[in-house]
Nucleic acid binder design. Sequence first.
DNA 1: TTGTATGCGTTATCAG
DNA 2: CTGATAACGCATACAA
Lengths: 333, 333
Amino acid sequence: MRRGVTLKDLAKELGLSVSAVSKALRNDPSIGPSTTVRVRQLAEGRNYVPNLAAIHLKQKRNFKIGVIIPDLFDQFYALVLRGIEDTAARHQYSVVFTQTHEQPDRERALIDTMLRNRIDGLLISITAKTDRTDFVDQLEAAGIPVVFFVRTPHDRVSYDVTADSFEGSREAIMYLVQKGHRRIAHLRGPTAMTLSQVRYEGYLQGLRDHQLPVDPELIKLPESGPDPTDRAMCELIQLNEPPTAIFTYKNYLTLDAISFLQREYPTRARPLDFIGFGNLPLLKHIDYRPLAAIDADPIDLGAAAFALLHQRMGNATDLVERQVKIPCHLTVY
Amino acid sequence: MRRGVTLKDLAKELGLSVSAVSKALRNDPSIGPSTTVRVRQLAEGRNYVPNLAAIHLKQKRNFKIGVIIPDLFDQFYALVLRGIEDTAARHQYSVVFTQTHEQPDRERALIDTMLRNRIDGLLISITAKTDRTDFVDQLEAAGIPVVFFVRTPHDRVSYDVTADSFEGSREAIMYLVQKGHRRIAHLRGPTAMTLSQVRYEGYLQGLRDHQLPVDPELIKLPESGPDPTDRAMCELIQLNEPPTAIFTYKNYLTLDAISFLQREYPTRARPLDFIGFGNLPLLKHIDYRPLAAIDADPIDLGAAAFALLHQRMGNATDLVERQVKIPCHLTVY
DNA sequence: TTGTATGCGTTATCAG
DNA sequence: CTGATAACGCATACAA
């Protein structure tokens, strides 16, 4: 921005005062219709663009929100961001976003940067390792509402927008049961994540839904050590009574598991059936692929996240739902 | 941003003038060292954050750039954006980005929005169908430099940062030749895109490098009609002397081609070898996958794009290179 | 219906 | 070395 047309320029050319022009442009009823038209026409002609910096300075509002996500490389987040972006733009908000790359300390630093940037609200999907979210208190105290999405904190009740993973998990199990499976294993996600906990509980409920027993041997947490998924799969497959299907916390896990099977047991008579969260577009190109993916529409989720934050920024704080759930659906490949 | 500590607050508390505090904070030499220290300490203690809106208003600079890309869903762009983001942040610039979803008219509208947002510079990767880029003239006339990246206009000489696709293509062909291939087909990209034109020419040069003849029958443009890739593949495979390897404009095309082969010619004696642009992370999970991917490091590319724009925004306009090329490298699967 | 005055938080100029 | 003052572009209470 070098030098744009200002209200003053317009006012001078029209022989009006700056404030009159200002009002006319914002359709203030106290300005006569003929003047209003004159003003708007000139503004159009001169290609007037209001200076946001001035408006923000005046109104003490920046129409700017911060978005913090783990990693844009995950296409799910890329789409969520799209939903946020589009919805925010529709409400004249601009978005400053950054990525933590799963590093909690980087998360801290980014939040500080956001503050420095004077955001009006924050949308955040925390790191898998984030255990304390007291930054929320600082922000909320400063009048900056915080809304979590996808991943939510377990150390507080938050405003958040998430996929309805519990129901999604039940649905996934139901699908496997319909396919005739009775021994269904679960590769679960990090215990520290609420999200993975919910999916785990959905799995348990899914089994109960069909009067299937819960066998602890069928539940694996691939987390520590090298090639954790390989080890988990190894244990599963060597059970006396191995599973016939596996429900995974995320389809990225499914891919690792399948790689393992193809590498170590290429000639297995009966392949395992998989189903997991995350509708990766490239999955359909894989031969040995999961039966189906379960997921909420990421764009909807992003839109809902912005909507909730928007409500909170509009100080209608009492009426808003604290938690919003986006329904999941199954995509069969 | 509700209400932050201001210079005035600090000044009052210190019994100094606002301007003195302002100078102290910016290390103005005209302020005594003891005062400077006093000021900085209080600023720290009170957690002072300068108000960007005010600074921008004063300095007529927003430290904000616009980024327009086709689609974030393409992981290549997701990574380029990461490079831009990180580098911009390091220079105190914030980034406003939007996606065109390959729609030229949306592109127009977005540029207007950017103007309204008073960006100091624009980084853009145009639509596959963008044929006129006269918006550049408007922007440059307004003092807003424009730098293209990845995809460049063919209706003007631009400032741009691109992958060195020409050399990359030659390298790809060399790899195939080393593998013993002599009949190498090319699935090329849209003729309207400079990028795809360059890759096409790199392919031609690659053949010449090894004294291979150019056979027009081996060059296909999968563009119009339904399932264009399928049709192109169909034609190639039914040639009297079909190709033994295919060099594709983009590995997304490779995937479509492979799907076709698996569907229509599942029992083909000797499978075709593929190589294409775009290092998709999920490729390694596919059984019938391309031999290799050729690509520039997207993060480097993003960083270079910001760097070029940054130079141009810093009015060192005479010294800067107009075109920057990022080298490609081969990833063998 | 329109104009005037003031202030948002900061920086730059000029006096002291 | 430090302080007063004006200005950036806009919105708003108040005066006319």
